[in-house]
Design a protein around this nucleic acid. Structure first.
Lengths: 220, 220
DNA sequence: ATGACAAGTTCACTATAGGAAACAAAGTTT
DNA sequence: AAACTTTGTTTCCTATAGTGAACTTGTCAT
């Protein structure tokens, strides 16, 4: 069905437009993802709210889904659009790296209010920086400066209860198991509101700056 | 039609509530691009082959374009999809995103042997994919296939005790608090060796098939 | 003002995407 | 092997996306 007409092509040529990108084979890719997960059309239907028949037709390129349908797909399946559009992948078998950090064996960076423990620091060239932070119990009035660094950050409370401040939003009260994903160039700060220290696990994207700002205040 | 305001969106994000979709504001973004280039609806119509009226309705969120229409836009205007989907840049750069997931409120993806809970899945375009996995107690002889996906993975045991197999190395016994960073295109697999289920938090670098492969091996 | 033009919106209609149910094919159970 | 289940396809209908034409609005020229 999705066949670009000669008229369109003529228009494009006449207007000096650049050659068009190859039509994205949405159907094949969707089917690939579905099969890789051992999902049935029915289960995908339940997850996405789209009818089984609709999914079948999309997979077989019999219809072109509306954008809302695409949204339902990416939301329901928990995938990304780039992922949905990327062509089938061939696996490259390289010798992988791995870096074990036993509990408590990370690199310690104590500061007055935080206690950072850098994890997996044997490995250079990582795309993520994981670290544990112990937030000492304190009066939250002490908080006076935003932490801010390039990239994105994921954070989950392992123990205790914290108040998480971020720019532009109200503070959040996070308890054990609660997690937050945010743009870390947005100012943020943690305060423990339990009587004891709280422990938080964070993972930042991207190298230096993340490490620098997150652990930085360590060295005085 | 469905015209959610920025304010509403901010409120929804701030409140952290929400079992459903973050609507991508395609219309605003398209209009923004068009105006930035001093294009008229007519010229865009010629470039893309879409009717002037159709473009108007898309810009005003009166219809949800089909995927073929989106492709015509991308091709005709010489832009790429991420560009089209990036939020209207009015405040987007100053206002950071954040996505709260309360404990247990992630997107559940149960399988026979694992129980995946996708965290922070309201946020598209992330560079990391965080998820919790409950590894059901079982005989590890059942493990017979590697999980393998592009990118890097960080993993920490929240509860219980697991045996982690990776290609090229010996298996590792990981207990609560132990963590591992590894190249995830290297085959890996988890087996619980505690009497109870074990809980593991993983963070994958984005893009590829993080969920797909992570959830894949479910059925043997 | 008023006509002329240009840019955008709305209308009326056609094409097609989405959904319910019937169908087909293959696997299970009895 | 017949009855049933499960998974994917096809059919038919309705909801809606896409189109050309009519309509509206704004700007400019005279």
């Amino acid at each position: 069905m999705p066949a670009t007409t000669d008229q369109e092509a003529a228009l494009r040529i006449a207007s000096g437009r650049k050659p068009f990108v190859e039509p994205l084979r949405l159907g094949e890719r969707l089917k690939e993802i579905r099969l890789a997960n051992r999902w049935t059309l029915d289960s995908v239907s339940q997850r996405t709210g789209l009818a089984r028949s609709t999914l079948s037709k999309i997979e077989n390129n019999q219809i072109s889904p509306t954008f809302t349908a695409v949204q339902k797909l990416i939301n329901g399946l928990g995938i990304d659009l780039p992922q949905l559009l990327s062509p089938p992948k061939t696996q490259a078998h390289t010798l992988g790296r791995r870096d074990l950090t036993r509990s408590g064996d990370g690199q310690q960076h104590p500061t007055p209010t935080y206690e950072h423990e850098l994890l997996s620091c044997q490995l250079a060239q990582k795309r993520m920086i994981p670290f544990k932070t112990i937030v000492r119990a304190r009066d939250f009035r002490e908080f006076n400066e935003w932490v801010r660094h390039d990239g994105e950050e994921f954070l989950i409370v392992l123990d205790g209860c914290v108040l998480l401040f971020t720019e532009f939003y109200e503070p959040l009260r996070l308890e054990q198991g609660d997690s937050l994903y945010f743009d870390s160039d947005m100012g943020h700060a943690l305060v423990s509101i339990s009587e004891q220290d709280a422990t938080v696990l964070s993972v930042c994207t991207s190298s230096e700056i993340a490490l620098e700002s997150a652990a930085a205040r360590s060295c005085s």
